[in-house]
Amino acid sequence: MKKIHNLQRKNLEQWTGFFYILPWLIGFSIFQLYPFISTLYYSFTNFTLLNVPSLIGFRNYIRMFTTDSLFQSSMRITGLYTLMAVPGKLIIALGVAMLLSAKIKGIGLYRSLYYLPSILGGSVAVSVLWRVMFMRNGLVNQILGVVKIPPIDWLTSPNIALGTLSLLQIWQFGSAMVIFLAALKQIPRELFEAAEVDGASKIRQFFSITIPQISSVIFFNLIMQTIQALQNFTSAFVITNGGPMRRTYIIGMKLYDDAFKNYNVGYACAESWILFMLILVLTALVFKSSDAWVYYSDEGDHK
């Protein structure tokens, strides 16, 4: 009798748990899972938003890799952007995290201040601000002018514009920084003390203790930031609108243009699936390589 009662209770508990996550499940299914599956279906159709989509096989995918030179150049530009923005952001985030892990007065305030750009960064308003700051007669050039550096066409020079967009991404280092900061705090102090006793320099300590100890967090940040960079849209859309000469025409912008300007929604879905696959493959590769360079403190017992 008691056994049956226990079983019922366990069942009820399971249902209670399910009930708790139900709101999330519903939201996830409607707003993510359903659109996600729909895009896969639409990617094999000629959907334009207005028509009744009909299946056209792999034609969208074939077009992407054969005739659509813009897709290929967008992918290249997105790759370049990621290569500039992600390492830059990680280095800055780690650097600032190291500075902010120091024990000085008012450190909480500094930490909040440095986190601010991340709260604001993805918004249109900041992109507009960035645009005004980097104009030919904007704030940045005015500051450079004080030290006699001639004005730089941050947004309109075909060779510089993408770098300027990367700077905006790098500037939003806050979230990566906070994660680094937490990781730095977790490193056992005695490791540094032992190293100091052995006469290791600060640089040696950094490379031999800090980096290996936080490698799992570097790994996490690397993946998250890469995904974020590959999916960027707002800054290119607002600041340069893909120009000059489509040198900042990242894949997020092309997706948007194809879907909502040219009404090739089926094609845009196919492109987003290729982007998804690319992110998946990149993530898998980083995971694969992680065995060689990522250290997990809780795995020591099993090895």
């Binding site: 993510q32 729909s38 895009t39 999916q231 987003s272 993530t283």
Partner: peptide, 23 residues
């Protein structure tokens, strides 16, 4: 185990790739 949790959470996040659907 950590790796597995990480993998699952990252996969969930990737699903945020722009998706188009009509309500």
């Amino acid at each position: 185990m950590k790796k597995l949790v990480l993998l699952v959470s990252i996969l969930c996040l990737i699903i945020l790739v722009p998706a188009f659907a009509a309500g």
